[in-house]
Design a protein around this nucleic acid. Sequence first.
DNA 1: GTCAACAGGATTGTCTGACATTCTTTCAAT
DNA 2: ATTGAAAGAATGTCAGACAATCCTGTTGAC
Lengths: 223, 223
Amino acid sequence: MPPELNLRITPRTVQQETVDKLRLAILSGLFQPGSRLIESQLCAQLGISRPSLREALRSLEAERLIEIVPNRGPSIPALSWEVATAIYEVRELLEVEAAGRCASRISPAQLRELERSLSAFEEAASSKDSIAQVMTAADFYSIILANCGNPILEEVHRGLVARISFFRGRSMSLEGRAQSSLAEMREIFESIAAGDEKAARKASKQHVLRAKAAAKISMDSDI
Amino acid sequence: MPPELNLRITPRTVQQETVDKLRLAILSGLFQPGSRLIESQLCAQLGISRPSLREALRSLEAERLIEIVPNRGPSIPALSWEVATAIYEVRELLEVEAAGRCASRISPAQLRELERSLSAFEEAASSKDSIAQVMTAADFYSIILANCGNPILEEVHRGLVARISFFRGRSMSLEGRAQSSLAEMREIFESIAAGDEKAARKASKQHVLRAKAAAKISMDSDI
DNA sequence: GTCAACAGGATTGTCTGACATTCTTTCAAT
DNA sequence: ATTGAAAGAATGTCAGACAATCCTGTTGAC
């Protein structure tokens, strides 16, 4: 009898572990935007070889989480407000569509799940833990996206949101943003629960626009 | 001397060349869906080392152009009709938005460029060269996407369209599809030229829906 | 004949080490 | 202070190696 019952069918490779670790590090803001990543340092810190690391870096590059300039190596891209705006606009497009579809097709079980994640965010919103706020909020969206009936919508959305994680952590720290965010999310939830597609779209749109505005404020506030 | 002017020529690395070559090979249907790619074979054919190849493969994996299963290696994913439908739906979302924006912001110079690409497609449509048809049609869209004012919209769209290139080549071969496609594209062009945002959206939506229908037919026709 | 265990080859995952090329920084010379 | 050259650091790329895993065809048992 194996002491560790590992039912995982796909074995986790070094490359996958590395991508996950680095992605998490990037998303949680461990690296300064614009800073360079030195291969030899990362190899030592992660305890892996250069070829494995470089494979992982190529994956992250394709996700647009890092940039790799020939002969200069990988670095954390500095997100301009223009690009951030563009991302928010596409995010709006996708999220509105997802919320609308979700309203007319989510299952009761998943709806309960959505309610639970809203409660989790509510709790986080009362605290000052902005990391918990971002994570629980992300759960909320991901349930909506997972239930919109279009896996591609979900996939693209995840990729985009990852790239603006930088702003999300900061804007959540804004005075009152977490609470107003909670109100907006509750409205989205209520609309979905009521099966009101139109209302879900409207609430969702409102939410993204407010999030964008909050991100802009947090960006302008301190440079 | 304007500091914006970037004279830096980015040297092309082996990895970039490899990604481009493989992407082109995949998009032009050189590999059968579901077929496996053997690293040693590709290395020999491309004349590169395994580490370089593996980096390129990771990039393509992140683009979803290939799949890499641990211990089984890379393969060409077989696109299910479900996923294809999902992609067409998101493509519709993006393309409609892009066409609408394009209508109210494209420059005269770019509009002429768009007209030129439409003519190029017209010529290709008369021929039986389905590859030329797909390429010129792709040019047409890419001009629209490049002028919608949102680089992310463009980026995401490019990634999605690449994944359904399989269908596009086949559906263009369908009896009369190229000609009806031409008519639809001309309508899109006319709407944009007239600066009629609403009409551009409508025409664009129609076009994607018809393309999806054609893809479905070409898929059902022979399996 | 069908099915299961098995051996062997093929293929991938990963590492080490190496070297040329290309930045980047330092330091000296004008 | 500006320029230029040399030293140092980091990347791009390769070759070779080996264990772990997958695939295939054969053998053996029922």
